[in-house]
Amino acid sequence: MAKAERHSNPFGWILLGALVGAIATAGVLLIASSMDFHGGYKPGPAEIRTSAEDAAAVAAARPAPVAAAPKPAAPPPVVTVPPPAAELPTVDAQMADDAAAAGMTSRTEQEHPTN
């Protein structure tokens, strides 16, 4: 029997060693994370304020001065200027042909020839 034990498959021992190693590593990490190395978290002020923030808070707390709005003068007269007449672009035969090919026939004039 001694000879049979010497030639056994080591896969079981490798698996058992990996399992024990994983459990040991998890235990060490658990213990290390629960330890208080530097006195733990020391709560400080909720926020760190600067002198500029303090000055802004004091200025916001003061009531704003109310200035009397000047009365508006008479409204300026309304001048209506007719819009200038729009010039129609000249459409040559090539432009009309390109527009028709692009499906923009409603924008072309019908009196121009399209080759």
Rank of each mutant, 00 (worst) to 15 (best):
A4I: 06
A4H: 05
S8R: 12
S8K: 15
G12R: 04
I14T: 04
L16F: 13
L16R: 07
G17K: 01
G17Y: 01
G17M: 03
A18V: 06
L19Y: 00
L19M: 05
A22S: 07
I23G: 03
A24S: 14
A24N: 01
T25E: 01
A26N: 04
A26E: 01
G27V: 07
V28A: 13
L29P: 01
L30M: 13
A32G: 07
S33N: 11
S34Q: 15
M35I: 11
M35K: 09
M35S: 10
G40A: 07
K42P: 00
G44P: 01
P45E: 10
I48K: 14
I48C: 02
I48R: 07
T50N: 11
A57Y: 11
A57P: 06
A61C: 05
R62D: 11
R62C: 04
A64T: 07
A64C: 00
A64I: 08
P65V: 09
A68W: 02
A69T: 15
K71E: 14
K71P: 06
P75C: 04
P76T: 07
V79L: 09
T80D: 05
V81D: 11
P82Q: 05
P84R: 09
A86R: 13
P89E: 08
Q94I: 12
Q94S: 07
D97P: 00
D97V: 10
A99N: 03
A101W: 04
T105F: 03
R107A: 14
R107S: 10
E111I: 08
E111G: 14
P113I: 06
